[in-house]
Design a protein around this nucleic acid. Sequence first.
DNA 1: TTAAAATAAATTGTATACAAAATTGAACAA
DNA 2: TTGTTCAATTTTGTATACAATTTATTTTAA
Lengths: 205, 205
Amino acid sequence: MGKKTTQLAYVQAYEYIRDRILSGELERGTKLVEERLAEEMGISRTPVRDSIRKLEQEGLIKQKRVVNPTDMDLRDLFQVRMLLEGFAASHCATYMKDEDLQKLKRCVEIGRTGELEEVMAANKEFHDLIVGATNNPVMIDIIDRMQSIIYLFRKTVVLHKRPLLIEEHDDIYQAILQHQPEEAERLMKAHLQLDLEFCLNWMKG
Amino acid sequence: MGKKTTQLAYVQAYEYIRDRILSGELERGTKLVEERLAEEMGISRTPVRDSIRKLEQEGLIKQKRVVNPTDMDLRDLFQVRMLLEGFAASHCATYMKDEDLQKLKRCVEIGRTGELEEVMAANKEFHDLIVGATNNPVMIDIIDRMQSIIYLFRKTVVLHKRPLLIEEHDDIYQAILQHQPEEAERLMKAHLQLDLEFCLNWMKG
DNA sequence: TTAAAATAAATTGTATACAAAATTGAACAA
DNA sequence: TTGTTCAATTTTGTATACAATTTATTTTAA
């Protein structure tokens, strides 16, 4: 029994467009024309419209254009991230199960030793594990929605090898491991603050 | 120049369905059938589908049914609320402008003296003012999305005249007025915790 | 040459028809 | 009864056509 791959056109369309945005093929600010995309995929406009609406809700598309976040947008996004992921980190320090702690450790290790793609996946999983451990679908969902936009920048961060990123992950992991909630929260917030600043700096230059 | 009322069918449909859910006409768990709604409003299914998709994203509809939150759903929602609105309250204690402070005060007053509808509106505005003062559209948007679901319960809370609600608002207002960020945050979180418990209790009984 | 108006083109919004899928309900066997 | 299969019905998903709107282009007047 393989992974059930949906053949619903609007899901295909959603994934197709989303991937092209995240891969950078569709640059920020690009106007998305329903008919063009539909033709491109060999389907009708109806499911394309659906998927565009969905991507609009998620914030990847704004007014039919690929989102092009300003400095301020990023700041706002990270402010929310710091609150939620900060809480999540402190929560982990008290409640995280051994199994997940192992996985967290593994992410840090891969961060040091892996190939580019692996490192990116591991860094994403590091954050996902922490947020997921809250077991709060509302929180997980909010972070998920921000994830796409964040991803565009996380890619940047890893591609440009931000210094200390892995060390920061390790510090957070240690604080969680040693059941230090306040410290874990503080470190997570500081980590995200540095990420933000790196992104902002990179955007200018 | 009057308020431009959109005549776009999918916006009308969105507002129509939303209002019927929030007013309670469409009870929790009710299946929403596109064609029935379309007929009811004298439009076609296309814009109705759009609006249902939007309401699904906002969490008011789940799998074509009016959302019917469990205890756990409410807890999860309020956990996020406490984080965000707690932060917002502390932010207000440092940065809120006099004009908004006045409005906040007015909300507390109306809470004591107004009619039912006025009180409900004032209580909503109290929270909106505090969140709005963060000036963070991402945060405002997240709270907005949760608002609809919360609204169903805030209505409950006011209709059943939860004791001390207005006093708590006043306490928060005082803390903000006197520039006590930690206290404002603490009070806001405690306030929401009590709201949550009242809702949960009421759901059972 | 510039700005405004008119027109043409492109794009989105809506209705409708039909196909695919999900749901219901009846008939039947254990 | 209980549960299972199959057909009937309902509901959703998709394509297509056309209307309304927005955007681009050309024309005209100052």
